[in-house]
Amino acid sequence: MGDGWPAESAIPVPPAPTEVPSHSSAAAFLAGLLASFRSVFALVLIGTYVGIGALAHDYGFSLPWLMASTVLIWAGPAQVIVISALGTGAALFEVALAVFLSAVRFLPMVVSLLPLLRGPRTRFSDLLVPAHFTAASMWVESFRLLPPLPRERRIPFCNGLAIGFMLSGHIGSVVGFYLAASLPALLTASLLFLTPMSFLVSTARNSTTLANRLALALGLVISPLLVYFQVGLDLIWTGVIAGSAAYAVRRLRGAT
């Protein structure tokens, strides 16, 4: 799927160097949108949201509400928490706290994505939309697809990419919502399994540096230990401990 396509194929060659900027940013947006459908994440998102759509239906939420939650939250794991917790009658404060703790990954994701997006003339307000769109799918694919692009095209490309991913999510939501009653339990389980499986292989592929590879391996080991010993704030602690240890090894080795 997405792997076989060279990143360059998504970028239309500009017809002339004198092209007007607004036209070129529209072209970059469109290129991002098209790139999203060639990415393996289009399938992952359709499948994941079929699962979330079925879940929302079973807990009695409406389809427009589910689609609004995709636009506003744009994080599969958090949406699963909101739907299943609200659906089982959890206290609102508990739901908000669970979402807050699960979303901590967006802080380091946005911080590390910003330098890739920013150009010499980028305003702070230009970054608000891509920051909201930041999720594992868009983050992983941005590190793969953005570096060959000229800086002034990266933000519109990224916005197009994320909107394309969101459309795939909506398509899956509609399908899942209406198929909910006829989905076998094992199929629903396999759709929920798409998130950890795709996060693992796509993060592994993107982890080309020693620090990132070690961070992935250490995180996979440390997180279960913290969960087992019931250490609170396990996501934050895993990030800080495994990420810092991986970074320290990189410093000691003097490698890149």
């Binding site: 990954r105 594992a136 895993t238 990030g239 495994a242």
Partner: peptide, 11 residues
């Protein structure tokens, strides 16, 4: 590296 580690924890 921290972002990758948090993602590993989510996985």
């Amino acid at each position: 590296a921290v972002a990758v580690a948090v993602l590993a924890a989510v996985i």
